[in-house]
Design a protein around this nucleic acid. Structure first.
Lengths: 204, 204
DNA sequence: GTATTTTATGAACAGTGTTTAGTATATTTG
DNA sequence: CAAATATACTAAACACTGTTCATAAAATAC
């Protein structure tokens, strides 16, 4: 069965070729700014060919989004090594906010773009997202187990951490801080203070 | 100059007719799900006619977004009457989160949709947004002046409040809570606890 | 070497935002 | 009032979009 294996491999390679070209375009032009025809032109194939490897644009976008989540997880590579749970939590927050602010289009593709996902896709999307979520869950669990934080309701802590870091990130990315009369440098310094304030407040 | 005034009035009325039809469609179908052709069909005019009243789709969307912000401000109508600044801040948080969760498409149109705004539009968008921002600014200023909160850095407080409430809202709207294994009822209860926790932490 | 499956595409379909030439209608002018 | 002008409107076209399908070419199976 060597041939069918090679075919499968070739199919994966072709998908990678499409994905590589598409990822760059999605990242710079966004979802609606990226057309399948331009992707096809870039990889020197007919637009119809893409449909042999992806059901439709959303199926392709699904893999694009997966790559964004993968990159986000990769941004945690140094953080996972940190032994102390509370310090790990602190650095997780910084890593999350830094990655998103440095990759605003990635952020848009991961969270802001609401494509009409099927239920299956939603489940699956959460599975991808789940790795990062699980990492936060475990870290907070350790913080509670070590009595390093005040409260003991882990779910509330997770929501607070995720809500605050995600919200502060959004504030920077969609330029809402401008309505407060701040520059980007200022707001980036401020959100660090916000994060440290929060940590101080929950610290045991 | 009665005629030119009437003409101006008629122009405004026509704009309102377009906007009313468009608003409903944007709210149910989102930005990309709403086409100018369908708006035109709904108001029984040619698609080209819309261009006599709006430069392009983004110009129309700009007014749609303004209406969303107006509705958000209207959701504060009861809150503005509250005398005690800290309690007003508390209810502002609830009002903000409730409005957005009850009107997720409005939230999407206000914050999630990144249309390629011109610099002018960005400025102007902030001006609209500014009313809500100003209300928060004033309330926090009063809280600090009354010594009702611990910190004295008003900008930090504003970012914390906005970041947390906005982040928690996002969590509910884009279904991210599902990745935590929660139901909508659960997460809505939890975000209230988060908000109360936060208030408790900053309270003097 | 022929038959069959796989892979790729050109052309078409239905939709989009937008522009333009041309037509009725309304207003102003002589 | 009639002619000239300005306004309101639209049908048709342009250049796109995602997507489908019949057809042609290549690879595999028998």
């Amino acid at each position: 069965m060597g041939i069918s294996e090679r075919k499968e491999r070739e199919k994966d390679e072709m998908r990678k070729i499409i994905l590589d070209a598409a990822f760059e375009m999605f990242l710079t032009e966004g979802y609606s700014g990226t057309s399948l025809r331009e992707i096809a032109k870039k990889i020197e194939y007919s637009p119809a060919t893409i449909y042999l490897y992806y059901k439709d644009k959303d199926a392709l976008f699904f893999d694009i989004q997966a790559r964004c989540f993968k990159n986000l997880l990769a941004a945690y590579s140094d953080v996972v090594k940190i032994k102390d749970p509370f310090d790990r939590l602190r650095q997780m927050g910084y890593a999350y906010m830094k990655f998103n602010i440095d990759n605003p289009q990635c952020f848009n593709l991961m969270f802001l773009h609401n494509s009409p996902l099927t239920e299956f896709k939603k489940e699956n999307r959460m599975e991808k997202h789940g790795n990062a979520v699980g990492f936060l869950r475990d870290t907070i669990h350790e913080c509670v187990a070590n009595n390093q934080v005040k409260g003991s309701d882990e779910m509330i802590l997770r929501l607070e951490v995720w809500g605050l870091t995600h919200g502060l990130t959004t504030l920077v990315i969609n330029n809402s801080y401008k309505a407060m009369g701040l520059t980007k440098q200022q707001v980036e310094k401020h959100i660090k203070v916000c994060w440290e304030n929060f940590l101080m407040n929950i610290k045991a």
